[in-house]
Each structure stands twice: as C-alpha cells, then as structure tokens.
Design a protein around this nucleic acid. Structure first.
Lengths: 263, 263
DNA sequence: CTAGGCAATTGGTATAGACATTTGACGGCG
DNA sequence: CGCCGTCAAATGTCTATACCAATTGCCTAG
C-alpha cells in the first residue's frame, strides 16, 4: 500500500534469500557459486558492496569454510568479486563483472549484441579434405570431409561468410541436418557427442576478393576481419575447423585477457 | 662413461626430482603448481602420460590432499593436465598445453614470435584529454593527459603504430622516462604502482589512411588490424587506453577461449 | 569361454578445526 | 595533534580424515 515496494530488495535481503539444496546431486560449492553468481550478475548488489564474512555465509549455507571458499574461488576467477586478506570480499566493478569471455556461437554472439541473426547455406558438400583440414584432424590423403559455407546475416544485412570443414568420419550423415535452422555446434554436441570446449582463433585483416565483396554487398574501401578458428573438445581432440570473414565496418571482435601472476 | 646419458631423465625420474620448501613464504600449493607446471611446460613428459595418483604425490610433497588438489586445480585450469574420476590424471596434449593466453606487452609478443622488437617515439605530448579518454578514466573536461605515439618495428620493419593515453594525474612526470628504451607497462608498475591485470581489446579491420600507409611503408591492397585496448588494475580501476594499428599482411592476433560449463 | 558381479583404485566433495597474515580501528602517550 | 602499539576481525593456508562416485580389472559362477 505504501512505503517500500515489495519488488525492491535491499542487498542484505537479497543475500538473505540465497538457498541451496544439500540433497541435490549438484555439489554444494557449485550451487553456491551459481546462486551467488546469479545475484552478482543481476546487478542487484552495487559495486564495492561488501559480502558478509566467510564464516557468516558458511553458517547461512550450512557448509564448511573450505566448501564455501571453493565457490568463492570460482566467482573470483570469473571476476565477479574481489577478496582482500584482512579486509573482506567485495562486489567487483561492473566492467569486471562483464569480463566474461565465453566461447560463443555466431547466433549467441549476434543475440548478445542485440541483433536478429539469420543463416543461409551457400553450399554443403562432401569433398576430399584440403591439406589444412587433413593436418588439423590427422586425416589420410583422400579422406572425405564436409565443407559447409554459410552466409550469416544480422538484421537482414549480410555480415559474414563462414566456411567450416569437418571430417565425415567424425560425424557421418551430418548432411541430414538443416544448418540454416539448427546450430552446428548444438548438432555436433547432441548427435555426435562432440562438445567443443576450447578454441584458438587467429584474427587478421584483409582486403576482400571480388567474390566476397559481391556476397557481402560491400561498398568500396571496406576491409574484412578474418577469423580462423580451430576448436577442440575438453580432451584436446580436434573438433571443427573454420574461417569466418566479417564486414570490417560492421563487426569487431572483443577479447579479454588477464595477466596470471600467482593464479 | 656409457649407456644412459645423464641429461636425459625418464618421466618417472623427473617427477621424483620435484621438491618444495615448506619454510618458504610462498604457499605450498603454489610451489607445487609452479614446480609441476615447469615440468609440464618443459615438454619432458609426453602427452597422455599418467601422473602418479594424488595420494602418492601428497606423500612425496608431504602435504595433505586438499593442498595438493589446490595445485592440481590451477594446473587443470591452465590446460596443462586433465583429470578423470576413477581413471587418473594425465598430461594434456601439446596444443592444450600451449593454450596459455596471457596478457603480453608488444615487446613480449614479438619476442615470443621470434623477432627483434624495436620502438621509436613519434610524439610524446601533454594534451587536454580527448573525450574517449575522459570517459574511460572519469576525468573532468580540460584535464591533461599524456599522449604517446610510437612506431613499433619487428626485425627493422615497421609493424605497427601505437597510440596511448594516460591521465597526468595518474602518473605525473611520466615524460621523464625514455619509452623507446623502457617498457611502458614496466614503468607504470614500478614507479606508479599501476600494475595492469586485465584488459579488454576490440579488434577490427580497416583500410589505412594515407598517413598510416606512409608511416608503415605499406604497399597498396593491404588492410590494417586495429586493436583498441582498455586495461585495468586488478581492482578494476582504469589503467591505460590504447590503440594499435598493425600491418594486416604481417600480423594477426591469436586468442584462446573456453566454454565455461561447470567451472 | 563368457557374463556378471565384486573389490580395489582413483579422483571428487565435504568436514571441523587450527594457525598465519593483513588490515583497520581504537586508544594511549608524547 | 600526531604517532605508535594493541587488538579484533577478516581472509589465506593447511591438516587429517571421511565418504562418495566412476572406472578398471579380476574372479567366479554358469
């Protein structure tokens, strides 16, 4: 009726509301990291806000201090909080909180930037693997690979051309799937058990060929940003080899790095 | 006199030789991670080589299992080893072992690529801070900032042009230093206590201006790779703002990413 | 010879407590 | 007023132990 609106919690109240389920199969420290992480990412706690002392939160969650600290470690590595010995633990600045550089698919990337992604398959063929492909996947000469070329659009404008090679051996029958509508990565993970975990990208600048200028509907005087990507599963096995060429005037890549001093 | 050369240790012997100093001020788990990390990075252990079980190594180092596992956690996050419940812990593939994407200075970067770096100061002025600079550092209008432009060379060939802005307030008297010979980052850390920990880079492709073509001695038909960098201290305070333009035909940026599933 | 199950091995999670180190506040003293 | 010592509070490190969960391989019953 009056006074404090119900939907506005104080930071202290928000922290009070955190719960974990000790019977769940998920480890307690993961649950704590996820719950606290959600709260931190929601922006409900102002930057610099001090978290309650570890011992207090351990009691809240009913876990031991080592367990709680495992969660804190995850959050600190993600840049969500900062700990100082003797002082306390504090909510990080917004800019650090946003420094989450996860591996994203094209679709996720465009959505994150607030656009409408679209994909058109230019070609989808089974071809003898090119040398670079053979080397990356350790293939014999003559082995077949899927070669997929897609035009990627954002808000109905051509933004990039993507070329991907994957050996047929790793995903027989891949051509049954409609890659204009379905995510390639999701398909690989769901139907072939190839969940990609890490990737190495080499980013360079080039002047586009006439062919690319036509496909991307490029005006003159625009360069392209070329990203060559090698992706791997968590065991380090090669997973996918790709090359994406973006319109230089419409796209830039954002990367985060950190110096590793002690950890 | 004959037989096994002394300088060739077996993997098992190499592991045997690891030691830590429990009286040192450095935490035991850091020492273990550094010692084991050095061994792993040296390439002395073949990929896939199984590490001794945790319990055995705990005894070797004379620490408890939790302590040892703190070290293992660091190494696994660095991609040096892989652990599998019930099976063991193994040395990672070379390509994962190299996936260390640390924040590097231009000099470190060129040295890592096996070139000879050089630096020429094009200009070093104190100017009213530009709007982008003011916004990044939260400066008042009219505040002064150092503006440093340097030509960066690799093996005597112009490779990039770097422009950096730093507020005078953060590092008064910076112009006393010779930035052709000394690292900017080292100077900032050593004399002003500004140790940069994280940075966000935006990488784009452009067609060079006439001025840049001249300075970089660029032939026609070559694009430039532009990297705009915002760097921060570990507390998230802004530290340096820079823009580097590389010759597109001589340089590409390499970045590593990982999907964060659970951790 | 094979299929099933059991036990040993290994990493994963968790506990309860101890001591170390750093920081900031408070208060006394010059 | 300022300096310094003390002390409490907070995070950092570490131990010794327990049990859980996944994997492997052996052993036995059929």
């Amino acid at each position: 009726m009056e006074g404090v609106p119900e939907n506005r919690r104080s930071p202290a109240e928000a922290l009070e509301s955190l719960r974990i389920d000790k019977d769940a199969p998920t480890p307690a420290y993961v649950q704590i990291a996820e719950a606290l992480g959600r709260l931190l990412k929601s922006g409900e706690l102002p930057a610099g806000y001090p978290l309650p002392p570890e011992r207090a939160l351990c009691d809240r969650f009913g876990v031991s201090r080592m367990t709680y600290r495992a969660a804190v470690g995850m959050l600190e590595r993600q840049g969500l909080i900062l700990s100082f010995r003797g002082r306390g633990t504090f909510v990080a600045h917004d800019r650090l909180r946003k420094a989450q550089d996860e591996l994203r698919s094209f679709t996720e990337e465009i959505l994150a930037r607030g656009g409408v992604p679209e994909s058109r398959v230019l070609s989808f063929r089974l071809v003898p693997a090119a040398e670079e492909t053979r080397e990356f996947f350790s293939l014999e000469e003559g082995e077949q690979a899927y070669d997929i070329r897609r035009l990627r659009l954002k808000d109905n404008t051509p933004l990039a051309i993507e070329a991907v090679q994957i050996p047929q051996r790793l995903c027989p029958g891949l051509d049954r799937f409609d890659l204009a509508r379905n995510s390639l990565y999701k398909t690989l993970g769901q139907f072939y058990g190839m969940r990609l975990k890490t990737c190495v990208e080499e980013i360079s600048a080039e002047v586009p060929s006439r062919e690319y200028r036509r496909l991307l509907e490029l005006p003159g005087g625009v360069a392209i940003l070329v990203i060559r990507r090698k992706s791997y599963t968590k065991t380090g096995d090669p997973c996918e080899l790709g090359r994406t060429s973006y319109r230089g005037d419409m796209y830039s890549a954002v990367v985060h790095s950190a110096r590793r001093e002690r950890e």
